[in-house]
Amino acid sequence: MSESNLMMHHYLAKYLRQERMPHIWCEGCGNGILLNCFLQAINELNVDLNKIVVVSGIGCIGRVSGYINVDSFHTTHGRAIAFATGVKLANPELEVVVISGDGDLFAIGGNHFIHAARRNVDIKVICANNFNYGMTGGQYGPTTPLDAWTTTTPYGNIEHPFNLAHLAAAAGAVYVARWTSLHVRRLKASIIKALQKEGFSFIEMISPCPEIFDRYNKMGTAVDVMKWFRLVSQVRHGCDPAKAEITENEILVGEFVDIEKPSYGRLLREMTSRVQDKLKREES
């Protein structure tokens, strides 16, 4: 079957804006896997495609919003979560999903991340973590491991990286999971779970960056990196995210947090009802 035929007949094809294909991502990049898992999740949940909004920031994965055939918005660098907060609060019927990268969400956009988690805004944030700024050619970012080589750490990285799952949990997320791009079925299951959950959910997917970060750091091909994921990752559901630091020898994955807490939108609607009822009583 030719490539265009395949595109037309694939069961997920209807979820893509096919005229935007091919995508801009490198061979072996995890972004396509993340997109695939997301499309499978909305397919399985039979989500109303007219009621889901995908928001992204800037970076390689930022282009994802343009590829998915739903209402979508590609914001400025770091501001996807703040934009998504406005969308969700203005129209609570919409399912709002932010898909973005580690640099976008946790460096330039870090403040929005922690505050959206603290407020428990009912949005889902999925992060492709490739340990560097890939789109600009491989500079170090908030997740770059100590000692790693990037174009702005020519003598090795001397900054300590964020543990994103720990950060999300500490900031108040009701659901926190981490997987690698090897864990496709589990990642899809986590997305399905997050979409059904009320409140701020965070899913981290550790991704290869074969042409940039992995090459600079002599990690081999994308397949080699996937092999490394298999070798060092261990599933630990319910594990304390504080203890889930990513190291060369260990990547703890799993569902770390799954709690219940009223969302900002729910509290706002309840408060509005109370205030309006009181006004009506006073008027009558």
Binding site: A82, F83, L89, N111
Partner: peptide
């Protein structure tokens, strides 16, 4: 959390 977030949320609300 700041004015950057404020206007970003306002753009989102307008699109909603």
């Amino acid at each position: 959390e700041d004015e950057i977030g404020s206007i970003a949320a306002v753009i989102g609300a307008s699109y909603a």
